[in-house]
Amino acid sequence: MSDPRVTSVVHALLRARQTYHQAEAGEFSETLSSAEQAYAAQDGVAQALQWFGPEGPMHWKSGGASRQATLTHAPLPPAGIWNSPASAGGFAFAMRGIEAEIALRLGQSVNAEQAATLDASGASALIEAMAVSIEVVDSRWSGGMAAPALLRLADLQTHGALVLGPWVPWAPRDWSQQVCRVYIGEQPVVQRQGTHALGDPVWGVPEWLRHATRGGRTVAAGTVLTTGTWVGVLNASAGDLVRAEFDGIGAAQVQL
């Protein structure tokens, strides 16, 4: 982490995590100029906080606004991975955005050579299970989702916590017909059908694996990937009970 621009962002993110006070995004709005710098900042924070063991990250997020957009990826710290039904307890959030997602679990390890030529069909063959997941969106930057894109990427793409529902065996589906519902406190239920931004949660898996295996790394069997929201980012508050349901797959819930 010799790039002083990356180092300054890492230090700002570490201070925000340690003090529970968001860093001023405006002070760093032009510090990073590439996704590679943002990913280096992710790595710098993870190394400083010793999040991952020798096997590397076992939970990731990956996604994008469309198949034409550049997908982004982030390894997720283990302290914020919760099994449903979960309770946030005293976990500190600056914001509580809610994304309803499908998580996938690899049935075998994948190295860089395998990932290099992988397509969606090959990726599907690597998956052993799926689960409903809820990502709680949070930010270490002032402005939250309005912070510059590279700063959000450096901050694990605004990740707060991940709630995983029960695992069920993986099987391809007609995702255009998939219905999901999200309940947040006393708010009206949000229902969507076929609204995954990539059309199919597996579509982005090959690109994620190529990212995760950079530098000759191997992604371990059992690694979990949550694959992007079906409902955008919904607002929740402390004290809300949040539940996401996907017909035919299952549900997950968290008490905030």
Rank of each mutant, 00 (worst) to 15 (best):
F91H: 14
D43I: 02
L164A: 02
E55F: 02
S139Y: 03
S87M: 00
R173M: 05
L162P: 04
Q50T: 12
G248Q: 01
A212Q: 11
L126A: 15
G248T: 05
A120M: 14
E36N: 12
P169S: 05
I102A: 03
G107A: 04
Q42P: 11
V202M: 14
V10N: 09
A88Y: 09
G122V: 02
F28R: 06
G199N: 04
G215K: 12
T213M: 01
Q18L: 03
A103P: 08
Q177V: 13
G185N: 02
V10I: 13
A251R: 14
Q47D: 13
A171P: 07
L164Q: 07
L153I: 13
V179T: 11
W175H: 05
I98S: 02
G64S: 15
H196Y: 07
V137Y: 00
Q193S: 13
A23K: 01
D3M: 13
R5L: 10
E27A: 15
L71H: 10
A65S: 15
I249K: 05
T195S: 12
V132T: 12
A244D: 05
R217K: 14
G199P: 07
L104M: 09
A129N: 01
K61N: 11
P201Y: 01
V163I: 15
A41Y: 02
S124C: 00
I98Y: 00
P148K: 04
P54N: 10
R210I: 08
A74W: 05
V205K: 06
V45R: 06
Q22A: 08
G44R: 00
A149D: 10
V110D: 08
D43N: 13
A16R: 07
M145D: 06
Q50G: 12
P169I: 04
G160V: 06
A171K: 09
S142C: 06
V132N: 01
P4V: 15
P188M: 03
Q108P: 08
A79F: 07
R105D: 06
S109Y: 00
G90R: 10
R67Q: 13
R140I: 07
P169R: 00
L256T: 07
R214L: 13
Q157P: 04
Q191V: 13
A146G: 12
